[in-house]
Amino acid sequence: MKRNLIIGGALSTLFTLAALLSFLWTPYDVTALNIGAKFGTPNGQNLLGTDHFGRDILSMLMVGARISIAVALAAVSFGILLGVPLGLLAAARRGSVVDEIIMRSNDLVFAFPSLVIAILITAVFGPSLWNAILAIGIFNTPVFARVTRGAALSLWTLDYIMAARVAGKGAFRISFEHILPNILNLLIVQATIQFAVGIIIEAGLSYVGLGAQPPIPSWGRMLADSQTMISFAPHLALFPGAAIVLMVLGLNLLGDGLRDALDPKIRRART
């Protein structure tokens, strides 16, 4: 369905642009306190209202988008840089001890939910944005390793790979010159999905205080701050949450749309 691609692409672009724009311009200074204007509901001056310090919520959301996107992007890159080579290696050495070790290590990481990884890291090193990236990145790694291995395995049986081997190419060159380009579509789709997962995990980590630390604005922390005020100022909780939902929804739709557009074979069995 083209519709997924268009809506997902539009939402993702919107948030990315807002995050980029926030480097140059925000409606108000996010650090400027204006106690006189606190708990302002959405109005002409502050489109999404103001928080308990009188800060402009729209401006905070724009800056928060940078953090969410940066963390998710870094964590996806971490997962790809580590997971894809491991997956390629496992596929190239399929059935060997190396393959077995990589796959069992994958299973091991899968036994730790991302939040539990984050808890372990934070308990020892303290909460920070970097530790959040590390935790989500570790969580992403076996996902990419598994997808890569699965896709690469089926390619290794094909004739043109056999031809490359006959031509004298080693497993390393075949993996990077022939296998990787052909599974790129799959990896792009998976990256989009993990991006969305990363946004939601980052929000959760920041919400419980294991992610971005003050004064860095983040969607998750805005939600945590708003919790005690929800009975009289629900808009403080409404907008950051809506931002997370729209961003994640956009990325998921984009992932679905890309999958349909890039790989006609899996168009039918969608979950």
Binding site: S231, P240, V245, N252
Partner: peptide, 22 residues
């Protein structure tokens, strides 16, 4: 269901509290 997947559970929880508890 697309929407349900995108909603952070703690955010949903906060509004459940607002509506059904408060």
């Amino acid at each position: 269901t697309q929407l349900g997947i995108a909603v952070p559970n703690f955010w949903f929880a906060m509004f459940l509290v607002l509506i059904f508890a408060i």
